[in-house]
């Protein structure tokens, strides 16, 4: 294809997206579109899968059967979200094994929030309330994204997310209404998860060079800072209602902008964790890789069994 031909294909492609048409896997697409989507969608899938680890750790220690079935169902949902997203990404021509390989080798990233530890039961409340809450804001914006398989996966995921946040808030609420020790535990979890949750929206707009491109392809509908503001504005009243304090002395209602002003995020910490130096980066990857390696014999045995069954059928047919 000549350069002029590619250029006109690209213009037609951008125009389709601007008209709100969806792009499907077999449609022509610019290489950059394919690569950007493989990267973002696989990272999204990895985040769902790694996100099971901090919470899965608490399933056996949930304080009641009610909490246990809810947490079990939530963690299973996150596994499901990962699977929807992996299969949506595969439509772009990358294999599942390649994606796992990129995750395990550290080439692919996942959401940094999962590199923080879940140290008490109150953390399970804070994760559902804040982390799933922030994820919902990001994901709702993606339901209208331009790549069909991604948009469809997001619609399914968003439907399932709302219970995640509600069960987390309920856990936090119950602790906040409990003994002084329980309330202190809820406050402590909020203190530790608040800032990392704000970081989930990514760098500030002026340090986010891909925003314009992502807006065009509808990978973003609002900027990082706009989404972060939305999260703060919706979460602060939820904390107040149950008598917890947001750990930010600079937090203040701003009548003029009809939103909260809030303090500066520790961006050094953000980049440290992204680069692999968070409290649990190593532990998470170790757990993930050992699950994959220890399961290898099972995967291999299943294939051999399936092939044998197939052979048996063929032999009978002869």
């Amino acid at each position: 294809m000549s350069e002029a031909q590619i250029k006109s294909l690209e213009e037609e492609f951008e125009a389709r997206i601007a008209r709100d048409e969806k792009i499907e896997p077999k449609d022509w697409m610019p290489e950059k579109y394919r690569k950007t989507h493989i990267r973002q969608m696989s990272q999204h899938a990895h985040s769902e899968i790694v996100g099971m680890l901090p919470e899965g750790n608490w399933i056996s220690r949930a304080p009641s059967l009610r909490r246990k079935v809810a947490l079990l169902a939530k963690v299973q949902d996150e596994g499901g979200h990962g699977l929807y997203l992996y299969s949506a990404t595969e439509t772009l021509g990358i294999t599942r094994d390649e994606m796992f390989q990129q995750l395990h080798s550290g080439k692919a990233k996942y959401s940094s929030i999962f590199n923080y530890p879940a140290v008490t039961w109150a953390d399970i409340g804070a994760i559902g309330w804040l982390v799933d809450g922030a994820a919902i804001i990001n994901q709702v914006a993606l339901c209208g994204t331009s790549f069909g398989p991604y948009a469809r996966a997001m619609v399914r995921i968003c439907k399932e997310e709302s219970f995640h946040q509600r069960q987390g808030y309920e856990i936090t609420l119950k602790l906040a209404q409990g003994t002084p020790e329980q309330k202190a535990m809820a406050q402590d979890a909020l203190n530790r998860w608040w800032w990392p949750s704000l970081m989930m929206f990514g760098p500030k707009d002026d340090e986010s060079p891909n925003t314009a491109q992502s807006m065009k392809w509808k990978l973003k509908r609002k900027t990082n800072d706009e989404l972060r503001q939305q999260f703060v504005d919706q979460t602060v009243p939820q904390a107040e209602l149950i008598g917890l304090t947001i750990p930010d002395p600079e937090l203040k209602w701003n009548e003029e902008k009809q939103g909260y002003d809030f303090g500066e995020i520790d961006w050094d910490e953000f980049w440290q964790v992204v680069k692999g130096h968070g409290p649990c980066n190593k532990e998470r990857m170790k757990a993930r890789v050992s699950a994959w390696e220890n399961g290898e014999w099972v995967r291999d045995a299943a294939i051999v069994y399936a092939e044998k069954q197939q052979d048996k059928k063929l032999n009978k047919a002869v």
Partner: peptide, 23 residues
């Protein structure tokens, strides 16, 4: 509804139940 990996048809059905029909 989507796709998934499985060693054979029977496993594909079982996985499909877990992945796509939890509700």
């Amino acid at each position: 509804f989507g796709s998934l990996h499985a060693a054979d048809a029977e496993m594909a059905l079982e996985n499909a139940r877990d992945v796509y029909t939890r509700r």
